[in-house]
Write a protein that binds this DNA or RNA. Structure first.
Length: 421
RNA sequence: GGAGAACUGGCCGAGUGGCUGAAGGCGGCACCCUGCUAAGGUGUUAGGUGGAGUAAUCUGCCUCGAGAGUUCGAAUCUCUCGUUCUCCGCCA
């Protein structure tokens, strides 16, 4: 959620930044309501102040044993007026909040400007793309052939885009998860978190999934609970409505969870294989930082995610997303894309975003500034490190041999217990 | 699911209708004292949202789990909901 004070003070700047995302975005409507809201509040405040003072007088008069009927009646009338104003206040307040909740974050100044993914900027490319003479099979064929993933029976017990890892496939998926977690906790200094995968609407609102993206999530019928679309939601909200000490920042956390997405708008896209499933495994990285730490910590976080691919020896590249391609809550975002032979292209495998205080304002994540004693909103950022299923797909596609076997990357051997499939 | 108890500032904890945005303690911060990474003293320290001012700062209002109600006036009384603890029941 954008800071209303900032919006009020720099309306032109905010509008300009928002329009870099989408020319239709504007905060004008919010500002209109803001003016009225403040006016109403001032009126109500004055009346409340009056009531308070008068009520206090009644107390004193009663102590002196005087009759207070007349004053009481006057104050009662004031109370009625206050009630009317308070209703208006609440209404305007809600309206303003609703509008703000549906406005995306402003992209940072340096984000590449553009109106489609064409404008994304490649920042670096790592590893060589080897196109073997024999021609690699796409992972959806290879995984079925080797009985690593059972797509058809997954659909039978659930629905389309749900699948079953089995045998060495399940072992490989588990190995990747463990490898990621071990690397991030032991080498990169993250705390491992194993959070609930069902969370309430407050948490979903805190990280920006609600109210705008309600139709993309699975929701419990009888309770205020949603299946998480990413571990970002429970992990970022761990400190919901808390005030942290500056000394405790940055908070670096990593979590493996299954993730659940309805993929409402993507019918027909990536229907084959593991790329776009309704349920998938992901190891997430989340950091809560001060604004000063944010840039450096984001670079580190992105490198931490990239490190996993380097160790797996998968070719990948980092791109910086342009203003139109960034997620709702992000102000800056790097995507890491891994080489996928079946697409003959790089495919997104991790998104490392900085949210500024956009999420923290929604989630009430604050810290106490050591020098001034004042509280401040944290900055939040996250990145998947990485989508496990996509990593799985990349491994079996990139490392298949002419003889039909798949060579497992060395770093995984101690987790899988086998070196080839 | 049923019964009882509880929910107050960063934390602990007083507070049963006006003098309480809230005693006291801990923790934090500042300064002082002290010859050794100890102990002590003094002061300071909630959040939100408005208004005035270039600013330092001054000032109104709201907030004692959430919401509704009673009242001239609610942390304090009533109701609903949530959460926690204890006991009972149920349990793939």
């Amino acid at each position: 959620m954008l800071d209303i004070k900032l919006v009020r003070e720099n309306p032109d700047k905010i509008n300009e930044l928002l329009k870099r995302r989408n020319p239709e975005l504007s905060i004008d409507k919010v500002l209109e309501i803001d003016v009225e809201r403040r006016k109403t509040q001032t009126e109500a405040d004055e009346l409340r102040s009056l009531r308070k003072n008068e009520s206090q007088k009644i107390g004193e008069l009663k102590k002196q044993g005087q009759n207070t009927d007349k004053v009481q009646e006057e104050v009662r009338v004031i109370g009625e007026k206050i009630k009317v104003l308070e209703e208006k206040e609440t209404e305007l307040d809600t309206k303003q909040r609703d509008l703000l909740l549906n406005i995306p974050n402003t992209p940072c100044e340096t984000a590449p400007i553009g109106n489609s993914e064409e404008a994304n900027v490649v920042k670096k490319t790592v590893g060589e793309i080897v196109k073997p003479a024999f021609g690699q099979k796409p992972h959806w064929d290879l995984a079925v052939e080797k009985n690593l993933v059972d797509f058809e029976r997954g659909v039978k017990i659930s629905q389309s885009r749900f699948s079953i890892y089995r045998g060495k496939g399940a072992a490989l998926e588990r190995a990747i998860i463990n490898f990621f977690l071990d690397l991030h906790t032991n080498e990169h200094g993250y705390e491992e978190i194993m959070p609930p995968v069902l969370v309430n609407s407050a948490a979903m609102t805190g990280t920006g999934q609600l109210p705008k993206f309600a139709e993309d999530m699975y929701k419990c019928v009888d309770e205020d609970l949603y299946l998480i679309p990413t571990a970002e939601v429970p992990v970022t909200n761990i400190y919901f409505d808390e005030i942290l000490n500056e000394d405790d920042l940055p908070k670096c956390m990593t979590a493996y969870t299954p993730c659940f997405r309805r993929e409402a708008g993507s019918a027909g896209k990536d229907t084959r294989g593991l790329i776009r499933q309704h349920q998938f495994n992901k190891v997430e990285l989340v950091k809560l930082t001060t604004p000063e730490q944010a840039e450096e910590e984001h670079e580190k976080l992105t490198r931490d995610a990239e490190k996993t691919l380097e160790l797996l020896e998968l070719p990948f590249r980092r791109i910086e997303l342009c203003t139109a391609d960034m997620g709702f809550s992000a102000q800056k975002c790097y995507d890491i894309e891994v080489w996928m032979p079946s697409y003959d292209a790089y495919k997104e495998i991790s998104s490392c975003s900085v949210f500024g205080d956009f999420q923290a304002r929604r989630a009430g994540l604050r810290y106490r500034n050591k020098a001034t004693g004042k509280t401040n909103y944290c900055w939040t950022m996250n990145g998947s490190g990485l989508a496990v299923g996509r990593t799985f797909a990349a491994i079996i596609e990139n490392f298949q041999q002419e003889d039909g076997t798949i060579v497992i990357p060395k770093v995984l051997h101690k987790y899988t217990g086998f070196e080839r499939i």
